[in-house]
Each structure stands twice: as C-alpha cells, then as structure tokens.
Amino acid sequence: MHLFSWLPESISSYGREMDSLMWLIYYVVGVWFLLAEGLVFYFIFRFRRKEGVPAAYATGRGLKAASWVIVPALLVLICDFAIDARGEAVWHHIKLEMPTPDVQVRIEARQFAWMFRHAGPDGQFNSPDDVITNGELHVPVGKVVRFELESRDVIHSLWIPNLRLKQDAVPGRMIPGWFKAEKVGKYGIGCSQICGNGHTVMGATLVVQTQSDYDQWLKK
C-alpha cells in the first residue's frame, strides 16, 4: 500500500514532473522519517531501566555534544535546498511560464457550476464562433490550452486531479493558466474551495478529444 500508488493517472504534460517531485519529497523525507522512528523504537527497547545501571549524564552542552543534533539538522537543511530547487523548477514551469497557446478557453465559476467559453477557431473571445458549454470542457489532445479563470460570486477552485491542475477562481480577478492534456478521454473536474451549500455538487467533465473530433464538436 504505497502512498502515491493512490495518485490518479496523470494525463498532462507537466503531470510527470509534478509526480516525480512528490516522489522525491516522499523519499527524502521518508528516509529521515524512518531514521527518526527507527531511533525512537531502538532506544525504547535498548535503554529500558535495568537495576544498578544508571542513565548516562549527557546534557548536550558544548559544541561537540550538540553536534549530534546539529549535524543532522544541517543535513536536513541540505535536503531542504534540494527539495526547494526541484520544486521551484516545477512551479516555474507550471505557473510562471506561458507557452504559446493553441486553444483558448474562458472558465467562469459561479455557485455552483462551471461555464466554459471556448474561443473557437478564431481564438478570440466574444466572437460569434464561441462555443459556450455548461459543465463540459472540451480540449484537443496534445495542444496547449490557455485558460482564463474568473468567478462571478465567491471563491471557487478549479480542480482537475488527472491534469495535476488546481487554481482558485477569485471574484474580481482574471487568473490565466495553461495545461496540455496528452490522453484522450473523459476526466472529472471538481471545485476544491468551499463555496457554499452546493460546493459538494460543483463538478464538471473534462473531455479530451483528438483534433478532428474537437474541430467537429466546435462546428456543432
């Protein structure tokens, strides 16, 4: 029963990076965790009180004694930097870069539904070829999708586990983002920020289609 064997299938271009980051943290932190727990349990069994054997007098004063904890703490610091460095690269790729988009959608959250305005072939919003859907987001496979996230009332959060994508939708702001889905299929979308009584039903579906299916769908 491995923690991350519970991860849902990753279908986005950056999903693999994100998963590997999570595995990295899992292993680095896991080693320390096992080490610490191991010591606790070893000491518990090893150092039970025995008649006539006094406990050691070790205060940890002085640099030499304290280095028993300070050296490990410095090693932890090095691990921290490793995690930070890797994490920052992944974060940068996902949230700070914006590859040239092939497709544009505007996503509007409201209590308690998702509305998707697909820009259509001309790539412009608010033009006649826009396709507006409720509860179904259509994207072509292998294409960079740029989205603009808005909310009409309260804070919601766009949550697509398979894409490893999460972004809050905040009233009064337009928040851009992107993803590239790499596998055809239907995937769940949820809202992950409490937004009222209907928070629990605020789902939608992501439909990843081949380019031709997508074009056909746009025309309909």
């Binding site: 610490a36 150092f47 039970r48 028993w68 904890v69």
Partner: peptide
C-alpha cells in the same frame, strides 16, 4: 518561491528539537 523556501526551512529548527528529544532517550534508564 520565497514562501516555499522559508516554509521548508522550518524543518531545520524542528528537527533540532525532535532529534534532541530522541537523543534524550539515548543511554536512558527508561
């Protein structure tokens, strides 16, 4: 990035505390 770094660095002081507590168990008469 800055907030992420400060957050993760908090593990250093806490590992000092936790390791010290564990070190107290070493050589003890438990």
């Amino acid at each position: 990035a800055p907030f992420s770094i400060t957050t993760i660095i908090i593990s250093v002081p806490f590992s000092i505390v936790i390791f010290s507590m564990i070190a107290t168990l070493w050589g003890a008469a438990l």
